[in-house]
Design a binder for these strands. Sequence first.
DNA 1: GCGGCATGAACCTACTCGGG
DNA 2: CCCGAGTAGGTTCATGCCGC
Length: 529
Amino acid sequence: MTGRYYGGKWGVYLRAPDLWFELLDRYGHRLVPLGEIADVWRGTWGGKDCFFYPRDASAECLAAHPDPADFEAQYGLPRADVASGRVKLVHCGEERGEIRPIEAEYLEPEVHNLMEIRSFTVSPADCSRMILLVDKPKSDLKGTHVLHYINWGEEQQYHQGASCAGRVSGERPWYDLTGHVRGAMFWSKIHKYRHIIPLNDQRLTGSNNLYDVLPKHEIGPSVLAALLNSSLVVLSKFQYGRYAGTEGTLKTEVVDVNMTPVADPGQADPEVLLRLEQAFVRMRRRQPISFLSERTFSEPALREAGRETELNALPNICELDMPDRRDLDDAVFEMLGVESAQRRRELIEELYACLRELFERNRVMEWRTNINKRIAKRRGAAKPSEVAAEILAEIKAKEPHLLQAYDPGFLDPSKPYDTYELPSVGEPSQGPLAPHIVEFRRGKKLIGAVHTKNTAQDDLLVFLARSGVRGLVRVPHDEEECRRVYERYSDFAGRRDERLRKLIQDRTADEEMQGRISDILTTLLTRSS
DNA sequence: GCGGCATGAACCTACTCGGG
DNA sequence: CCCGAGTAGGTTCATGCCGC
C-alpha cells in the first residue's frame, strides 16, 4: 500500500475539519502512514523511576563540601573520585531523598519528556535525569558502588514491583535496562500546545513518555525529522491521536503514530527534499515555541475576569508566525505535488487558520475543565440531589431509552386492565396470610392494603411499587398477560438499574452516598417519565 | 495445530511536583 | 502554600512465539 493512504480510525470521521478531507481527497495519494517509512517504538521502561532515573547530585555535593575529609565523612567515598568524574553522586529513592554513589560508566543522560526539550535537537544538557544501565551479573560487580546501589534497591523492594519482576528472564536480572535500541528522533506520547519531533543525533535514551523513531530505507534522519516537524503533521496527529479526558491533551499511542499520514518522501523530487531539509536546518537554529501565543492562552481567563484590556500587553506570536516554518511547510506542499507557489500559499493560510482554531478550541476546553474542577473542589463533595440531577440530565441527553416508563410503554391499554391506587410511601409486600393482597408497611405499621384479582397482579404491583411507580396504577386483568408484562418490565428495569448503578459508581465510591443518590434518581425517573 | 508463556501495547488512575 | 497538569506505574488486553 505504499504511497496510498488508507483510513482506519473512526475518530477521524467524528472530528476532522473539512480541510483534512480536502487534503486527503486531493493529495491522499502522496501521503503515507508514518509506520511505512519509519519504525516507532516506546522508550525505556524502568518500573521504578526513583531507582532507574536518578538525578545527578555530583556538582552540588562537590560545592557543598569542598573539604575532602568533610566530603568523605558525608558521602563515604573520596572527594577526588567524584571530582574526577569517575563516580557520580545521585539523588534517588522515595522523594529523591537519598544521595548515593554510582560509577559514571553505568549512567547515561536520559531524555525524560517533551517538557524539558528546548530545541529541535536533544542534547545531554536537556536531560534532568540519568538512566542506570548495568548489563552485568552481580558476580561481576564485586566491590563496586553500583552493586551497593542494586542491593539497596532490593532492600527497598524495588525488584518486586510488577514491571521489574516481569523483566527477569533467563540471563537478564531485574535491574538490567540495557539493550534498548535508540532512535534517530523522538515523538512524545503526550501533546499539548507544542509540536517538536527533536532529532536525537547523540542517540540518547528516552523514557517511556517518548517514542523512538527511526527512518526506514534510504530516508535520512534529518529529512524525516523535517517532515515530522511540519504543520501538516500537526493536523494529522490530531486526527489520529486521542484526547485524554475532555481536556485539550492529545495522547498518541504507538499505533496512532504509525497510522498518522505524512507526505511521502519516496514520491518526492530530491530537490524538494533538499529544500525541506534546509528549511529545517534554519529552524534548528532557534528554540521551538508554542502553537498557542501567550495572549490566546490567557484569553479565556482574562475575558472571564473582565480584564480584556490586559490582553494587548501579552505577546501574540506563536509557531505559526515563524518564517522558517512557513518555508518548511511550503516544501511539504510541494512534496504533495502542489506546483503553484500561489496555491501553496493559500493552502498554508488555510492550514494555519485551521490549526489556530484547533489549538484555541482546545485551550478553551481545557480552561473550562479546570474551572469545573475548581468549583467541584471548592464546594466540597456534591450533594446527592445534585449528582442525581446531573445523572438524569446525562441520561436524557445520551440514553433516553432508559427513561421508558411502565405506563405507557409496557402496558397495553387496548387489553382489559384493572386500576389500583398504591400509597405513596411504605414498603410493599404480598400479604403473608391472605393471597391477592398487597400490603404497604412502614416499619411494622400498616399504611395500606390493595386487594387484587390474582397472584400475578400481586407480583407485578410489588415490583412496580419497589421501582417507584405509585399512585393510580393500571395492570393487566388477564393473569397470563400480567406475567408477560411483569417479565418484560422487570427485564428492562433490571438493565436500567444496572446502568444507573454504574453511572452512580462513576461519580462516588461512598456506598452510603450511592444509596441516597439511587433513591433520589428513582423518584426523578418515575416523575420525569 | 494448539496451548501456554513471554512480550509489548493500551488503558487507567492516584500521585507528584512545579508554578503562580 | 495551594492547585492542577502531567505523569508514573500498575493492570488489562493483544499478539507473537515456541515446543510438543
